[in-house]
Amino acid sequence: MLHAVSSAVLAVTRHLSVREVLQVIVRSARTLLDARYAALGVPDDDGSFAEFVAEGVSDKQWDAIGPLPRQHGMLAAMLRDAAPVRLPDIREDPRFEWWPSAHPVLKDFIGVPIRDADQVLGIIFLSNKRTPGGFTLADQDLLTLFAAHAAIALTNARLYERGRELTVVEERTRMARELHDAVTQKLFSLRLTAQAAASLVRADPERALTEIDRVQRLAGEALAELRAVIVELRPAELDRHGLVETLRKHVSLLDRLYSERITFDSPEDGDACDLTPATEVTVLRVAQEAVHNALRHARASSIAVRLSVPGSRLTLEISDDGDGFEVDGPTSRGLGLVSMRDRAEGAGGSLRVASEPGAGTTVFLEVPA
Rank of each mutant, 00 (worst) to 15 (best):
T210Q: 15
R19S: 15
P235Y: 02
G242I: 02
A278R: 10
T331F: 07
V286E: 01
T167I: 03
S332D: 08
P368K: 04
A219R: 01
Q185R: 05
P368L: 02
K60L: 14
A354K: 09
A76H: 13
A344Y: 01
A83S: 13
I230V: 14
D342W: 07
L154T: 01
D269I: 08
I90Q: 13
H241M: 14
G111C: 10
V327S: 01
L32I: 10
E268T: 12
P368Q: 07
T31Q: 08
C273N: 06
D328K: 07
Y160N: 06
R162T: 13
A147V: 12
T184H: 00
K60D: 15
V229Y: 05
S266R: 00
L238R: 00
E260Y: 03
I212E: 00
S6R: 06
R261M: 06
L351V: 05
E237F: 05
T361W: 13
V201T: 09
L254Y: 03
R174S: 08
D46R: 15
T246S: 15
R191P: 01
T13P: 00
H103T: 04
V26N: 08
E268R: 06
A77M: 10
A150Y: 04
T31V: 10
I303R: 07
V367N: 03
L233E: 10
T279E: 02
V169S: 00
G56E: 04
S355I: 04
R313P: 03
A359L: 12
V85A: 14
G122Y: 05
A182H: 02
R333I: 15
A298Q: 08
R158T: 12
T282C: 11
N293P: 04
L16F: 09
R86Q: 11
L75W: 04
L284I: 11
D274K: 08
S252Q: 11
G360R: 08
G349Y: 02
L238W: 01
S48I: 00
F52K: 06
R70Q: 10
H149C: 12
Q119L: 15
L192D: 12
A344R: 00
D320L: 05
S48Q: 13
L209S: 13
A35P: 11
E280R: 11
V338Q: 05
L316M: 12
R164G: 06
G311S: 11
S308L: 02
A153K: 09
T155P: 01
E237N: 14
L154W: 03
G41H: 07
Q119S: 15
A64N: 05
M175D: 14
L200G: 00
M74E: 10
S101Y: 07
G47A: 08
R296T: 15
Q288E: 12
R191Y: 02
E51S: 13
G349S: 09
D141L: 11
T361K: 13
G56Q: 04
E225Q: 07
R227M: 02
P88T: 09
R80A: 15
Q195D: 13
V42M: 08
R164L: 10
L254Q: 11
A219N: 03
R95M: 15
E356T: 13
G66D: 05
A294T: 04
D141P: 01
Q61C: 02
R80P: 07
P67R: 01
A77E: 15
H103G: 11
S319E: 12
